[in-house]
Design a binder for these strands. Structure first.
Lengths: 341, 341
DNA sequence: ATGAAAGCGCTAACAC
DNA sequence: GTGTTAGCGCTTTCAT
């Protein structure tokens, strides 16, 4: 039964009748297909407007065999990182007139499987899988529609993953520290079992190795928290005189903020005594810190945009591609890194 | 044209053929309609399984005149507050087998109008409008489907708004401060033009008025930021000796955190000298603060759940209701409020 | 340039 | 109990 709360839904037939043409002509007129006399097209458009015609997208989907819908499946849960991704995804999809169906897997494989079925039943044109787990996630497998993984990687090299380049981001941080004159560097990271922790370590070490006269003084792994940052500050301060650190790269802005607080409260000047660089460019943290944090921005919005536009390309028949596409990060300058001297 | 990347999609006809029945019977068997012999039902289910039949939800929607989809339209943008709401909404909708179509209005009326049209064209069964603006937002108007506003209110009293009870939340905070022995209270709020600021002020004053021997010493409006909290701390500290404050209710956890930092750094003990209560129960802020913040939890997940279940009720033919439904907040106890003495 | 007719895959009313 | 028949509202050949 066609629903109606107020007025019965108006269909192409109604429009056709009012315009004195056939339903087929209405379709063509409204979608710019075929070749119609300009006069007819206008007459149809007027009729449609007059009747406040709302083309039933469901019927259209059935007929066209395409829904102009993509599913967004989150591995973990909606988190802070999901937001900017969603924003970017909507940017790209909105431009292509496609809508987003939301599914929150919440890290539960069963739940995820269920949602996947649902998306497939709904005949979405494609799926973007977001997530940010420590390691690569299990691929959702071969599907009749294109799938792109964003931020969190798929464990299947045949899948396409779009993510940020952690290694390059870390290099950026070190290069900046070196540029402001720092030579004795430490890396205060999140948990070791996090892929991003490892990748950033590689970048950190590579960049230090490439800078003559600069050395890695300390590497400490902990948690993604302010508390860990403060703890790390204490540890850094306990280093013997003459073996101190003058530049710290942190695995997150939360860590960087905690570290900065710890140093400041111990009377160590940031950035005058020690330069600090964070990671994430999470405004709430970076801007509230004292001083505000210089940090590495993984550019999540752009990641979302890119993944969705790759997906759209594949939906429109292009090649999706495979492997990991790592987008460069950017350095965002604030007060925590450049000494005034 | 029905799409296919691998295998042509299998339909009820295919299942019917394999099971040796008619398409109509397949539909009944799979949806538990009508009365079929158990044996037939099983045979059909097996056939469906064997062929990996995916009922085309699009066709079903067209036929049933119901899409099992609701639109989620955000007024502002995806923000920190949207996340828990979405979680709650998905909780309720998922149970009812309905999916969520995401639309980010980004505070742009044109964009919003566009999305609204899109949702209507897609024949969603209902819409939930989220947002958190300072004041009530313009109603999306009379629609052929039910609409519920959550968190941010609609300006039309005929619409249904589900939100948290700011006034009650503030009372809760004051009652707690009084319970731990505080008598000279201040309210450090966000911007005055925010509805929630005003409502909380009312609750604050009402609760103080109801507590004998307790007085309002100061009320200060500023921004939703840590920086403002620190500034406010300074202002509080500059009060003349003998006219000091011993309990502060803050309009947000960010403010509370800034305030706490400001007090601590000036040598004022929290909670021993001054008790502090925040608002939001935003874990990142509340838990990283020193001490962790006692705060008022508006329970956004529950708000999302409630709004979605009200919507589902209306979709299933029930009354939606109207006006503002304000859900109570809860007090969450952490370290910033109860003095050790 | 336009109309007629078939069909997308499913459900539902009515036969048998 | 199960099959048959019409649609749901649109797009899209194919005639004209």
């Amino acid at each position: 039964m066609a629903s109606s709360r107020n007025e019965a839904a108006v269909t192409v037939r109604d429009v056709a009748q009012l315009a004195g043409v056939s339903p087929g002509t209405v379709s063509k007129a409204l979608n710019g297909q075929g070749q119609l006399r300009e006069e007819t097209r206008l007459r149809v458009q007027e009729a449609a407007e007059k009747l406040r015609f709302r083309p039933n997208q469901v019927a259209r989907s059935l007929s066209e065999g395409r829904t102009y819908t993509v599913g967004m499946l989150t591995s973990d849960s909606f988190g802070r990182f999901t937001l900017p991704l969603m924003e970017g995804i909507e940017d790209s999809l909105g431009a292509g007139k496609v809508s987003t169906l939301l599914c929150d897997g919440r890290g539960d494989p069963l739940r995820e499987r269920h949602y996947l079925d649902e998306l497939l039943n709904r005949r979405v044109d494609g799926i973007v899988v977001t997530g940010r787990r420590p390691d690569a996630r299990r691929s959702v497998g071969q599907l009749p529609i294109p799938v792109v993984y964003v931020l969190g990687r798929s464990d299947d090299p045949d899948d396409l993953t779009v993510t940020n380049d952690d290694e390059q981001g870390a290099r950026l941080a070190v290069e900046h520290l070196v540029a402001v004159g720092r030579t004795r560097l430490a890396y205060v990271s999140g948990p070791v079992h996090h892929l991003s922790t490892t990748l950033r370590l590689q970048g950190f070490e590579a960049a230090v190795a490439a800078a003559p006269g600069v050395e890695v003084v300390d590497v400490m792994a902990g948690h993604w928290s302010e508390a860990w940052g403060r703890t790390a500050a204490g540890m850094l301060l306990r280093r013997p005189q003459g073996d101190r650190v003058d530049g710290v790269f942190c695995g997150s802005d939360q860590i960087a903020r905690g570290l900065t607080d710890g140093l400041r409260e111990a009377g160590v000047g940031v950035p005058d005594d020690v330069s600090v660089v964070g990671f994430d460019n999470w405004d709430v943290m970076a801007e509230a810190a004292r001083p505000p944090l210089t940090t590495i921005d993984p550019n999540l919005v752009r990641l979302g945009q890119l993944s969705a536009s790759r997906l759209l390309g594949a939906i429109d028949g292009g090649e999706l591609g495979s492997g990991v596409v790592a987008q460069p990060c950017e350095l965002v300058l604030r007060g925590s890194s450049v000494p005034s001297t």
